[in-house]
C-alpha cells in the first residue's frame, strides 16, 4: 500500500477524530494569528446597508433579537453591526422580543456597541419579552401599545419614544434576527411595516429567498458572513470579520475532507469491498 493510499485509508476509517482535531485547530488558529482573509460583499448586504443609510434621524425602527444565547455566534455579530449602524444614523429604536432570551440579548448588543449620546427612553427602548410567539407577534402588530411596561418595569406612557408609537405603521423599518423558520415574523409583519430586514442563519437562506424575491422581505444578512460584510461596508471591522477567518479555514478543511472521504469510498467500492 502506498503512503498516500495509507493516509487516505486512515482518514476514511478514523474520520471522526481527524475532523474534530482539524476543526479545533482551525478554529483556534485565527484567534492567535489573525489572517485577514479578504471577503466579497453580497448584493443583499449592500441593499440592507443602503436601506439603513437612507433612514432619516428620528425615524422609528423596530428590532426583534429573537434567538437564543447559544446561537449568538450565528447571528449576534451581525446584529451588533446593524445596531451600530442604526445608532450612528441617530434613528429611534424600539426593541421587542418574541423569544424569552431576546431582552437580555438586546442588552448584550447595547453593551457591546457604541451607542454614542443616545438616551434610554428617548432614543431607544427595550420593551422586553412578549410570550406567545406568532400570536404575540400578531397581537403586537394589531396594537404595539398593548405592552404597558418596558423591560425595566417603567410604564410605557412615561417613555418619550413611545409617544410617537401609535400603530405598527409608525415604524419605517423592522429588523428581526432568528435562526429557525422565519415565516412567523414575515407572515405577521409583512405589509404592516414598509420594509423588513432579517438577520438569519445561513442554513435558512433558501427559505428566505422566495420572500426576498417576492418583496415581503426587503433584504437579509446571512449570519456572521453577512455581519462581516456589513462591517466591511461600515469600515468598522469587528467580531464578525474575525470569525470569518476561522469560517474560511474550516469550510476549506471540510471540502478537503469530503474529497478525501470520497476517494477512500470509491477506492473501496472499486475494489469490491
Amino acid at each position: 500500500m502506498s503512503e498516500k493510499g495509507g493516509l487516505i485509508e486512515v482518514l476514511g476509517r478514523n474520520y471522526r477524530q481527524v475532523i474534530w482535531i482539524g476543526v479545533l485547530i482551525l478554529c483556534f488558529l485565527p484567534a492567535f494569528v489573525p489572517l485577514g482573509i479578504p471577503i466579497s460583499i453580497d448584493k443583499l448586504t449592500i441593499k440592507a446597508y443602503k436601506c439603513i443609510e437612507e433612514l432619516e434621524p428620528g425615524d422609528l425602527v423596530l428590532v426583534s433579537p429573537d434567538f437564543t444565547p447559544g446561537m449568538w455566534v450565528e447571528v449576534g455579530p451581525a446584529m451588533n453591526a446593524i445596531m451600530q449602524h442604526l445608532f450612528m444614523k441617530k434613528v429611534r429604536i424600539v426593541i421587542v422580543s418574541f423569544y424569552i432570551d431576546g431582552p437580555v440579548l438586546a442588552e448584550k448588543i447595547l453593551r457591546e456597541i457604541d451607542i454614542g449620546d443616545a438616551k434610554y427612553g428617548v432614543d431607544y427602548v427595550n420593551l422586553g419579552y412578549l410570550p406567545g410567539m406568532e400570536t404575540a407577534m400578531a397581537a403586537f402588530v394589531e396594537n404595539p401599545r398593548r405592552i404597558e411596561y418596558d423591560y425595566y418595569g417603567t410604564p410605557v406612557e412615561e417613555l418619550e419614544i413611545m409617544k410617537d408609537v401609535k400603530s405598527i405603521g409608525d415604524f419605517k423599518l423592522y429588523i428581526f434576527a432568528c435562526v429557525t423558520w422565519p415565516d412567523p415574523w414575515i407572515r405577521q409583519f409583512s405589509g404592516k411595516v414598509p420594509k423588513i430586514i432579517t438577520v438569519i442563519s445561513p442554513a435558512a437562506i433558501s427559505l428566505v429567498m422566495p420572500y426576498v424575491s417576492g418583496g415581503q422581505l426587503y433584504s437579509m444578512l446571512p449570519g456572521t458572513k453577512g455581519g462581516a460584510e456589513y462591517e466591511a461596508l461600515m469600515k468598522r471591522p469587528g467580531v464578525a470579520t474575525s470569525i470569518m477567518d476561522a469560517t474560511s479555514l474550516c469550510l476549506t478543511f471540510v471540502m478537503l475532507l469530503v474529497i478525501v472521504g470520497n476517494i477512500s469510498y470509491w477506492r473501496k467500492r472499486l475494489r469490491g469491498e
Binding site: 410567539m133 406568532e134 429557525t180 423558520w181 415565516d183 412567523p184 407572515r187
Partner: peptide, 9 residues
Amino acid sequence: GVGSLDGGD
C-alpha cells in the same frame, strides 16, 4: 425534532 404544534410545523 424541535417542530412544535403551531404554524407551518
